[in-house]
């Protein structure tokens, strides 16, 4: 176990170096000049030159890269170029709203998907199975932007079932997050259901199910005790891989429904080429991705005694 972890940590170092290189290169080439934006419409050329030095923008690419690596090593990305808020504060403020939207949405979506998948696996080949599969494909064939625009207009404005936009910290957030959660579930449940259905069908085709069936064990019991337990491995590992995306959030849902989370931060920072925030965000995403991949592997091994980490 420990050598396994050690090896994964070592292996992640070149990945992080590579990610840093790619991101810095992309934004160094693509971003607008932040200094112009920062100094307003009538800047003094001397101030421009000074600020360039201060922001580390005067260095050659390699110098910037070394600075970036230093920031990664110290986990200190400084302050945002535009709001000049320390990046730690930005993340501390945004993480709760983001998670209060994505966690329940993810759990609800995954729960519904698993339940439906087992249901259609139970009735495989029937009309229900076909209808549900078609429905699932239809649900994921709609653009997320259409979902958001139409459901906000219909459910919040026309039918007034939900608030249009807003957020309250604490329990008060409940009324505000229901509609975005609903949209998240609609967007994700189709894909998840189809995946879990495949997993369940694969499991149902195995020998032990046939044996159990020939012994006269009720179909429902087979499904919910044996099959579900064995399906747990792919389900749990898939969920572990999704977790990093919960933290980076869904920026479309956040900006349309006023959830002051990390998705909004990311969107705004890309719009204004706010490099420190982008750097921090990328590194957070990358590290979480690596960590949860390892977690998935460990879970995989823990749930399936046949697999050993080596």
């Amino acid at each position: 176990m420990i050598p396994f972890l050690l090896r994964r940590v070592l292996y992640s170092i070149p990945v992080i170096l590579g990610v840093a290189l790619i991101v810095l290169f992309l934004f160094d080439v693509a971003g607008g000049d932040p200094i112009q934006i920062k100094l307003g419409k009538n800047p003094d050329p001397i101030d421009v030159a000074e600020l360039r030095v201060e922001m580390g923008q005067d260095k050659p690419f390699f110098g910037k890269y070394v600075d970036f690596l230093g920031q990664i090593a110290t986990v200190d990305f400084g302050t945002s170029w535009f709001t000049e808020t320390p990046i730690r504060t930005i993340f501390a403020r945004g993480i709760v709203p983001t998670l209060s939207l994505t966690m329940p949405a993810f759990l609800l979506g995954a729960g519904i998907a698993v339940a439906l998948a087992l249901l259609v696996a139970f009735y495989r080949g029937s009309m229900l199975d076909k209808a549900m599969t078609l429905l699932a494909i239809a649900a994921i064939s709609i653009s997320s932007l259409v979902y958001i625009l139409v459901l906000q207009w219909l459910l919040a404005d026309r039918w007034k079932l939900f608030p249009i936009w807003g957020y309250e910290r604490g329990l008060g957030s409940l009324t505000f997050i229901v509609l975005p959660i609903l949209i998240w579930v609609l967007l994700s449940v189709g894909t998840d259901m189809r995946y879990f259905r495949t997993v369940a069908l694969e499991e149902i085709g195995r020998d032990y199910v046939r044996t159990a069936r020939s012994k006269g064990v009720a179909e429902g019991k087979i499904l919910f005790t044996h099959v579900l337990r064995n399906c747990a491995i792919p389900i749990v590992t898939r969920c572990a891989i999704i977790v990093p995306f919960l933290i980076t959030g869904s920026f479309l849902l956040e900006i349309f429904f006023g959830i002051p989370g990390l998705g909004t931060v990311l969107y705004e920072s890309i719009k204004s080429s706010d490099l420190p925030v982008i750097k921090a965000f990328t590194m957070l995403g990358t590290v979480l991705y690596i960590v949860f991949n390892v977690v998935a592997d460990i879970l995989y091994a823990a749930l399936d005694p046949r697999i050993r980490l080596s």
């Binding site: 079932l161 608030p163 807003g166 309250e168 409940l174 505000f176 229901v178």
Partner: peptide, 20 residues
């Protein structure tokens, strides 16, 4: 269960974004 919970949450929703 999940559906019932969701239904309850729905019913609890008030569209006013300035509570209290």
């Amino acid at each position: 269960m999940v559906l019932v919970g969701f239904g309850l949450a729905l019913a609890a929703c008030s569209p006013n974004p300035y509570p209290g």
